[in-house]
């Protein structure tokens, strides 16, 4: 039997279908070539980008536009760096005009030091963008009740932070994420905080529908090798989730039979 027989359904977010459950960012790479190679090796088919002022210097180099194959990737523009509802909504509207996509990764952050999401602003911006026809993938804290409000507001998926953005602390409160998944019907994608491959596997084993990360790959000593690691970690975690882990027991439980040992020892 071929292992591809065990691959499961694609991830659906609103009207979008993603084969890979790993979503990756495009920030912090050394150059566009490294970005493009890391994206390819990660196996992701949804990649996040940011929206910023264009460089008016006529000698400005090539654009990220030239290094992301838009036929191949679903581009997910974010509102990173927005600390109020108004700027997040404006940024989303600019990104929709720029990319001709209704997709947006909504971030409304509280402050620059912690980059923790502002829950009230996030909910308000979700409502406004959903009303305006966006497919909102919303970055939020791991507060389960807030996740319910965001889903009720029409978010296409809810994306709780495993831990603070770029912190590499992994999934700090797995139980909160499990509870959130029980309470809402739209996909839960763990976004932010991934430090290494096992963090991705853990999130997927919990039952997350996907993981979104950037620094975990871009900040590794060898980003391209880490991109491959993250790809496999995501698949491994997903398959383990679908397979069902065994219960944890206090005592050992031998895998080899006790009966039939040499010297006639009784089992």
């Amino acid at each position: 039997m071929d292992e591809t027989a065990f691959l499961d359904d694609p991830l659906r977010v609103g009207e979008f279908t993603l084969r890979s459950r790993l979503l990756v960012g495009t920030g912090k790479y050394r150059d566009f070539e490294e970005t493009a190679r890391a994206l390819e090796l990660s196996g992701a088919d949804c990649v996040t980008v940011a929206v910023r002022r264009v460089n008016l210097d006529p000698s400005a180099g090539p654009s990220l536009f030239d290094h992301i194959d838009r036929q191949r990737y679903t581009i997910l523009p974010n509102t990173a760096g927005c600390f109020d509802v108004e700027s997040a909504v404006r940024t989303a509207q600019l990104s929709r005009d720029l990319l001709d996509t209704p997709l947006v990764k909504l971030e409304v952050l509280g402050d620059e030091r912690t980059l923790l999401p502002d829950p009230i602003g996030t909910l308000e911006a979700t409502r406004r963008l959903v009303e305006d026809g966006f497919t909102v993938m919303v970055y939020t804290s791991d507060d389960a009740r807030l996740g319910v409000y965001l889903a009720e507001a029409g978010a296409a998926c809810v994306m709780p932070a495993g831990s603070p953005i770029g912190s590499g602390q992994g999934v700090l409160n797995p139980n909160a994420i499990r509870i959130l998944m029980e309470l809402i019907d739209v996909p839960v994608i763990v976004d932010a905080g991934v430090g290494t491959a096992s963090d991705v596997s853990q999130a997927m084993e919990l039952g997350a529908e996907g993981v979104l990360l950037n620094t975990g790959i871009a900040g590794a000593r060898d980003p391209l090798r880490m991109a491959v690691a993250m790809k496999h970690a995501c698949i491994a975690g997903r398959l383990a989730h679908l397979s069902g882990r065994i219960p944890r027991k206090l005592y050992a439980n031998a895998s080899s039979p006790m009966a039939g040992r040499i010297d006639g020892a009784e089992g």
Binding site: T26, K28, T35, V49, R52, V54, L212
Partner: peptide, 26 residues
């Protein structure tokens, strides 16, 4: 200022224009 309006939209005295593009980000 939507893409479809660029050819007609005339800039007025004092307008504050923001021009944005894509950059790497997560």
């Amino acid at each position: 200022a939507p893409r479809s309006t660029r050819a007609e939209r005339i800039l007025a005295e004092g307008d504050v224009v923001e021009l944005v593009t894509l950059v790497g980000g997560g």
